[in-house]
Design a binder for these strands. Sequence first.
DNA 1: GTAGGGTTAGAG
DNA 2: CTCTAACCCTAC
Length: 279
Amino acid sequence: MGNQKLKWTAEEEVALMAGVAKHGPGKWKNIIIDSEFAHKLANRSNVDLKDKWRNLGANYGQGSGDNAMTPKGKATADSAVRPKTQNSSLAVVSNDNVNEKLSQGPQNPKSVPKYNAMILEALSSLKDRNGSEFGAIMRFIEKKYEVQQSFRRLLSSKLRKLVLQGTLEKVQKRYKIRRAASGSKTPTPKQKGVNSRALQKSMLTISAETVEDAAKTAADKIAEAENKSFVAAEAVKESERVSRIAEDTDALLMHLKEGRTKEDNTNSNSSGVTVILVV
DNA sequence: GTAGGGTTAGAG
DNA sequence: CTCTAACCCTAC
């Protein structure tokens, strides 16, 4: 009875953001101790900060005007996310262990999320406009997958972290695009029907056109990433976490690259773009 | 201490 | 009713 919900004031939010910019996400205790923010966050606990930060993440798209989120067909209790597998995009099929019969049985409810895969997919598919990092990526993923609240906020918190740490950009920079065929722009003739060939041991099924498009987009991204910096990118120096996350993502990128290469062999090279991983 | 899942008050 | 945000619980 005593505890009603205390709405966060704008001042508190600002203090929180400033705190995160200064100490980094996850350092809730430090933030709350810091005399610079302490008084403003006087009646908030470190857990409150964490929760609020999470909510801010889930809240990403409020300023964008359009879009809110997918109408939500209502997700069932046992699947937090439901891949819609469209036929023109990158389809991520994780199948590492005989595995992951998602939404098949009421059993493992938490084997589905592949944050990095989704983020990577979004990165590859989105045309990069300024500031598209967060909102656009979230939107992309929500459009493509049915996302439930719990999953969304989880994803957004991960994504937010990546963005804050500049990891997203780092990942992008690890790709180098090289055009094998010079001259004619080769605007990626969309040839459909090349895909739908499942790779034997790879965990990714991708269509050739998608890769080409992704590569093209990536080139732009890289160029822009050089000169672009995100709000609080300078705030974080946790190289441990950065490299850990980068590793994760790298693994995925690696798979993607291998899958493509393999496809390429079988299918002969129909594209003029080669993606090579720079380590 | 923190992350993440769960619960619930309040708004639409 | 649905959805969001504040709050609670608990494993790590």
